[in-house]
Amino acid sequence: MFLAIKQQCKSYFWRLAERRSPRAEAVVLRHRSIYVLPSKAGLGYMLAGLLVWLLGTNYQNNLILAASFLLFALFVVSVLHAFGNLSGLQLRALKAEPGFVGETLEFPVELISSRSVFHLLLQPVRGPVLRCDLGRDQANVVKIPLAAQRRGWLKPDRLLLKSYFPLGITRVWSWVYLEGKVLVYPEPRPAQFAPQYGADSSGDQGDRVRADDDFMGFVRYQPGASLAQVAWKLYARGAGLHLKQFGAQQRQSQWLDYHALLGDVETRLSGLCFLALEWHAAEIDYGLILPGTRLEPAGGDQHLQRVLSELALFNPAEVGREV
């Protein structure tokens, strides 16, 4: 019950914070989204100021009182400077390089300000603190690490920008929601080929291996071989890519076929991703067949990216049928 309320409050808080600093590709920090409070050291500073004030009050010593007022005034000025330090800072999400599930991707953010910005600390929600100083009108690119956990578009979570400048007694911060995204490809992982698949043979799905052919043995993988012929078990043992040789060899086709693999959606996509990389490295032309999508065989970096993007963004629910 209590936890639920806490959760509720938390989510309300973050909604509020997000409303004050809406998601955008480029964000300029303004007073609406900048917060200043005393830091932990600042509380100590205030305590020292209070003690000095008590000393001055007790001994009715105007000079000591003036000293405590000076401490207070320094705090006020420090808050203003802290605010001025962050205010006007512009952040822009740059184009990020895609990567695979399991990797840590880098999300580049360009920081620029018409003023010098000192001792800026950037902290993603889960991640290390990055330190950065900016010269006046000097762009600085900070690469924010993002752990890719699922395929598809990865959006950076809110970014905490904070600074303890100038005296370390104030903590000025802002939550920044950058409208950027990184494409995350499935993790390349070998998957198992479906042996029964050959029974269903419709022309437009390309040539397939017949299940009733006699197994003859293994040969080294050759460019252009069908994925159905790959000896996945051998590969999984670390023996490299080999093809199963069947009695009646067929002309090898170049299709990455979703239906030719075993396992759930993610396993199959990982398998397809793995093969795409292998074939690309081996300079084989290949096409892609996904439920609802078909890419004609081709080669090259662009084709690989198209194929990987399709794999990354494949949405079984969108296809509208059980796969």
């Binding site: 007790n58 009715q60 003036a66 005034a73 006020v76 000025v77």
Partner: peptide, 26 residues
Amino acid sequence: GLLFQALPIMLVLFLALPRLGSLWTV
């Protein structure tokens, strides 16, 4: 800069904040 800007605030506080009497004797 910090001190120069803090001094006027200090001055205002010094001039306007009321003084309390001694709280205890040491």
